[in-house]
Each structure stands twice: as C-alpha cells, then as structure tokens.
C-alpha cells in the first residue's frame, strides 16, 4: 500500500515544497509569456491541511469556484487540479481577452480560454516535475467546472481520502499590475505513485 500524507517526514515535505516552488515558478513564467506582461508571483505556500480546512481557504464550501482538472499518466499516475476563485477566473479571462468585459461567470469562450490557461500552467508544472525526477509524465486534456467549492474540492479530497485524512496543496498567487489572481495547485499522485515520486527524488528508500 502507498504512503499517506500523514507519514511524510520533514525532509520529504521540504522536497515537495521545493517542487511546488519550481513548478509554480515555471507556470508563472508560462503565464507571463502567454499574456505578454510581467507577472509577479508570491513564494508559493505548501500546506498540508485537514479536509474541512481546504474549502475554508476559498471562503467556505458553498462559494462558487473554478476548477480545472487533469489526469496524469506515465511513470506515475494521478491527477492535478488547478483551482481559482471565481473572481480570479474572470480576472484571468479578462487579461487574456480584454474585450470580454466584466463577466460575473466566464462564458463559454472564457471557459475554453481558462482551460487553455490551465493546460499551459499545468503543462509547465508537470514538465518541471518531470525534469526534476527523471520520470516520464503526461497530462490529459483539461476538464473544467464552475460550482460550489466543496463540490469541486470533493474530487481531489476523495482521492487523498483513499490513503489518509489530509491533502497536500500548493497555493500560488500571481499578480499582474493591480490584478490579483489567486490559484491553488493540487498534485494528487495515485496511491502507489507517491512512493515512486518520493523515491525518484531520493527522499525515500
């Protein structure tokens, strides 16, 4: 059986934090290139949280959020979720498509733009993970949903729930001028893949 988040020691957590830093840094660079503007990024926070604490980060389980979800396959399998507050998702859509006006909820075109952003961000995140670990990792096409935070989060939480009672997430904040975009990356290796990932990073015997 795999390793649960609870069993990680501080060295393993530090390594995962560092992956988060590098991955999110590359993702921010990719975003800056895409919109051809300077993007500032805060040092990402890596947190291990109890299930009930996760939805609170976004303002509670009923708050509408935008989730972009990918399956990961290759030497390790699992999934990635890129989660944005609804406000951040419209801010991001407006950065890419300045003509789209101030929408409350991204329309169909806005949503496909967001999927593409998610694709590029997750792709750069995964390629840095792949470079660091030497593992071959591929991601699927994205699937997007805008709904209650609790409902969207139930997807990664259930996957973490198969091995423990905590989730590992990387919180990143991107800023373009006064436009703040707050995003969360969840990297969710499948049960057996966590071990492979930690071994490839040299922090598990």
């Amino acid at each position: 059986m795999g390793i649960s988040i609870e069993e990680l020691d501080s060295q393993q957590i530090d390594v995962l934090k560092e992956i988060g830093n590098i991955g999110a840094g590359n993702a921010a660079t990719a975003l800056a290139k895409m919109i051809d503007r300077k993007i500032d990024m805060n040092v990402p926070k890596v947190e291990i949280l109890e299930f009930k604490e996760v939805a609170e980060l976004l303002g509670g389980p009923e708050v509408p959020v935008c989730g972009i979800y990918f399956r990961v396959d290759g030497d390790i399998s699992g999934s990635i979720m890129f989660l944005l507050t609804l406000k951040s998702s419209t801010t991001l859509t407006n950065m890419i498509m300045p003509t789209s006006g101030d929408m409350e909820i991204p329309d169909e075109i806005g949503q496909s733009a967001l999927q593409e952003i998610g694709n590029i961000l997750s792709g750069s995140y995964i390629s840095s993970l792949s470079a660091l670990t030497g593992l071959s990792i591929k991601i699927s096409v994205p699937s997007l949903a805008i709904d209650m935070a609790g409902a969207i989060l139930s997807v990664p939480i259930i996957q973490f729930g198969q091995v423990g009672d905590h989730v590992l997430l990387i919180e990143t904040e991107f800023n373009e001028g006064n436009n703040e975009v707050k995003g969360f990356f969840f990297l969710i290796p499948d049960v057996d893949s966590f071990e492979i990932l930690l071994k490839s990073l040299g922090v598990l015997q």
């Binding site: 009930k52 209650m148 935070a149 609790g150 409902a151 139930s154 259930i158 729930g161």
Partner: peptide, 23 residues
C-alpha cells in the same frame, strides 16, 4: 455536518451539509 462527518438531532432543528460533490 462537514465532509466525512455525521450528526443527529432531536426535534426541533435542521441538519445541513454544504457543497456535496461526488460525496
């Protein structure tokens, strides 16, 4: 009632759980 949680009440009262997805 939170995720992975349960509760019971006697009348009167209301039980609620927020943002059910695949749960």
């Amino acid at each position: 009632v939170g995720m992975a949680d349960l509760n019971v009440i006697k009348h009167p009262g209301t039980l609620t759980t927020l943002g059910l997805g695949s749960c």
